[in-house]
Computed example of a mutant assay.
Amino acid sequence: MIYMDYAATTPMDEEVIGAMAEVMRSHYGNPSSLHRIGVEADKLVQRSRETIAAAVGVNPGEIRFTSGGTESNNLAILGAARRYRSRGTHLITTRIEHASVYEAFRLLEKEGFRVTYLGVDETGAVRVEELEAALTDETILVSVMAVNNEMGRIQPIDDIGRLLKSRPRTLLHVDAVQAVGKLPLDPKAQGIDLLSAAAHKLHGPKGTGFLYCREGVELQPFMAGGGQEDGLRPGTENVPALVGMAKAVRMAVERQEAFAAHTSAWRQKLVDCIGAIPALRYNGSPHSEEMAPHIVHFSYPGMKSEVLVYALEQQGVCVSARSACSSGTERPSRVLEAMGAPYAVAVSGVRLSFSLRESAEDIERVCSALTRVARDLGSVTAEPQKGRRS
């Protein structure tokens, strides 16, 4: 099988597995314990925090460990909105956010907050002028993802950060789950107050993530316990997973330029392949610099995405329909609908996502599989249905 679903999750790197195994064998202490074994475990936790902070260009004290992207997003959004409610009750996000962001805002609406959901253009990008028009004196939080997890469209975070620079009472949260280790990020320079990431998108362990929380920003926790992570995320730390995440993040950032060069070449080849198949429709910006290098999205109008996923699997290629967190539903893609796509396009979207590991031969095989699937499914739909009268 050729795995083309790296935006959903990635296989763990052997070096990460080795580092985690060593910690499991030798460092079993509770980081909160005062004895030497506990202190050694705590040193590993703090070293992991320092490694991640250095990789993303922030201070160690601004890194909070979580169970992954979903918890990071929820902690940032719910924590900030509830903490700063006295400033105002208006929030802004987009219609293309990951479910862990979108549903958090839906929850806040039930709590009495007013939420503006911004649309996007036909390429999937937020219009900064619409964001500016939506801002009010009551706006306390703006949340826009760095890279759309379904489409791969890069969002104008730099422009949004500059726009909000003169509004210190309005926080900027960025879901960077699909961006860390893949695209240049500088939270300080970009004016980002809160940034979410997950280890398993970077060849690290599942169930582990982090939240950058700028110094001076306060969040209201939604868990009670022993006070770990400055009270924001109480509970005994998963030391092996944190060590694994730190190693994965560091390695991903170190390989970022190589990753971009490698995946950009394969992305262009896949886009050209899709463009050469009449039944398929490429989704996203035609300008490669506006798209994440590791994601390609297309539709087969008239065919449900689940059918395409199954057909490609039969050809030896693993892909996704929508986000992995929302696949399996028959509803149209919320992202494609926001882009103005018709129903037939919105229910037939498929995502290809890849890494440094694919070879030219792998990409050729994927292109051949796409061609065969489009041909075979096209012949099935073209056949007259037996038993039906004209």
Rank of each mutant, 00 (worst) to 15 (best):
M1Y: 06
I2Y: 11
Y3P: 00
D5L: 12
Y6M: 04
A7F: 06
T9Q: 13
E14I: 05
E15T: 13
V16L: 00
G18D: 09
V23M: 01
R25K: 09
N30M: 09
R36T: 14
R36Y: 15
G38H: 09
V39S: 13
V39M: 15
A41L: 03
K43A: 13
Q46P: 00
A54R: 12
A54Q: 13
V56R: 15
V58K: 01
I63W: 09
F65N: 02
T66N: 00
S67G: 10
S67M: 14
G68D: 08
E71N: 03
L78M: 13
L78G: 00
G79K: 06
G88T: 08
L91P: 06
I92F: 08
H98I: 12
A104F: 07
A104R: 06
F105C: 00
F105H: 01
F105W: 03
R106N: 05
L107Q: 14
V115W: 12
V115H: 11
Y117P: 02
D121K: 07
D121G: 11
E122C: 15
T123P: 02
R127Q: 14
A133P: 02
T139F: 02
L141A: 08
L141T: 09
V142F: 07
M145Q: 12
M145K: 13
E150R: 05
E150C: 12
I157M: 11
R162W: 03
R162Y: 02
L163H: 02
L164D: 00
L164P: 04
S166R: 03
R167D: 05
R169N: 08
L171Y: 03
L171E: 07
A179K: 02
D186S: 13
P187M: 07
P187I: 05
A189K: 12
L195N: 12
S196V: 05
A198I: 03
K201H: 07
H203E: 11
G207W: 00
T208V: 10
L211Y: 05
Y212W: 14
C213L: 11
R214T: 05
E218C: 04
L219N: 08
F222R: 09
M223E: 04
E229H: 01
D230N: 14
G231P: 07
P234C: 05
E237S: 13
E237I: 15
P240S: 04
A241G: 10
G244Q: 01
M245T: 04
K247N: 06
V249P: 13
E254H: 08
A258P: 02
F259E: 01
A261E: 15
A265I: 15
W266V: 01
R267M: 04
Q268H: 08
K269Q: 12
L280E: 02
P286N: 00
E289M: 02
E289Y: 05
M291Q: 05
A292L: 03
P293C: 10
H294I: 02
V307Q: 09
A311R: 10
L312K: 01
E313P: 09
V317D: 07
R322N: 13
R322K: 12
C325N: 14
S333H: 12
R334M: 08
V335T: 11
L336E: 01
M339C: 13
Y343M: 09
V345F: 03
A346Q: 09
A346L: 11
G349Q: 10
S353A: 11
F354L: 07
L356T: 12
S359H: 09
S359K: 08
C367H: 03
S368W: 10
A369E: 07
R372L: 12
V373N: 07
V380E: 15
V380S: 14
T381E: 15
E383D: 15
P384M: 06
Q385A: 12
R388Y: 15
